[in-house]
Design a protein around this nucleic acid. Structure first.
Lengths: 200, 200
DNA sequence: CCATTAACATACAATCTGCACGTACGCAGT
DNA sequence: ACTGCGTACGTGCAGATTGTATGTTAATGG
């Protein structure tokens, strides 16, 4: 039971090196982008060799996917933390949106999740990852709002996708120097307009 | 003044090979993505050598940018064609949106303009390209609608970006198999809701 | 008609990726 | 505790790719 650094179980070894690789990769992917980051760079930063990398991950893309999944889960977690089930659908949507924008302001999340992610992994994989994390929550929230009549009956999938796209774009714009207030205001107007709408 | 194939001026030579490279590159970039397409493949498809490519373009990325710019201009052109100045702001927005979705349904435009483009060239460059083409038109249309009071006073830049993001996402979703009608309906509801809104 | 330059083709150097091979340590069975 | 095996790596290699430097041909301008 000694937590010695030289004497560790295989399980903790694996855990440690996987984390080291993911963390090092994350930093480089964020700083230089996926394509411009080489595996020698990554393993050097992690204090390992490419042998370790290709033992734990099928290829460079699989490592990138692990980074993206971790990041997506982190964002989803922050959103869930901000939207307890006790909130009304309306409050949940608003708070969730706030939490999303705040979470996406961290480090290089926009680049990982909104730029390189879709291009490297493909939109289908990204949708899958999003769905396993935050997007499902959003869709359910909207469905709930629709059931209560807060929002007109519209194709759920489409509405979810378009709202998510708006939030994504807002996160991108804010990181690029746009004023958060502007985007919050427009997002609010868009959602608010929807709620007082009969257009169908 | 002979348009002989063997006897041609430098200008038409340049024009011809640039087009051949861009066309061949477009097809491969669409089919396999930017990263998975090699320059030997491109020049082989164009019936040239890499010498020609690197003579006309600084690097692979510059060739990709040329492809993206051509595609963006094509989309913008189709939108302009569908929105003559005689239309009311409201009609122009609706028709423009329709035209956009239709134009984006062509070949691999979503991949070029919405997936690989932002990742390879960066969001800033893509914004620049969009602005030089279609986005400016959209912003002016919205500004006009705002001036007439059709749409509440909101930060113009933000509103433009979020609406554009919605249309982008709709184009993506439609290509992925989503029903056009669904997205048109939601898009309409979003815009319609905005017009009958006091949220500000 | 000649000098210059543009428009290529070819050859080369530097990387990078993925895999095959080799090794040492942890782990289960006896 | 000893042994056989699989896991967790490190190392070396082959193929491919990018950008550049060098050479050649053809067009252009004086």
């Amino acid at each position: 039971m000694k937590t010695d650094s030289a004497r560790r179980s295989n399980q903790q070894r694996t855990e440690a090196t996987r984390s080291a690789l993911i963390d090092a990769a994350r930093e480089l992917f964020v700083a230089k982008g996926y394509a411009e980051t080489s595996t020698p760079e990554i393993v050097a930063a992690a204090g390992l060799t490419r042998g370790a990398l290709y033992h734990h991950f099928a290829d460079k893309q699989a490592l990138f996917r692990a980074v993206v999944e971790q990041e997506s889960a982190a964002v989803a977690h922050e959103i869930e933390k901000a939207t307890p089930a006790t909130l009304s659908p309306q409050e949940a949507l608003i708070r969730g949106g706030e939490a999303f924008l705040e979470a996406m302001a961290v480090g290089g999340r926009t680049r990982l999740l909104l730029l390189d992610g879709p291009a490297v992994l493909g939109r289908a994989v990204m949708d899958e990852i999003d769905n396993a994390n935050g997007a499902r929550t959003l869709r359910e929230g909207i469905a709930e709002a629709m059931r209560v009549g807060m929002v007109p009956a519209l194709p759920l999938e489409a509405l979810t996708a378009l709202l998510a796209a708006g939030f994504d774009r807002a996160a991108l714009a804010v990181e690029a120097g746009g004023k958060v207030e502007d985007y919050r205001q427009v997002l609010g107007a868009l959602i608010g307009g929807l709620m007082s709408d009969r257009t169908g």
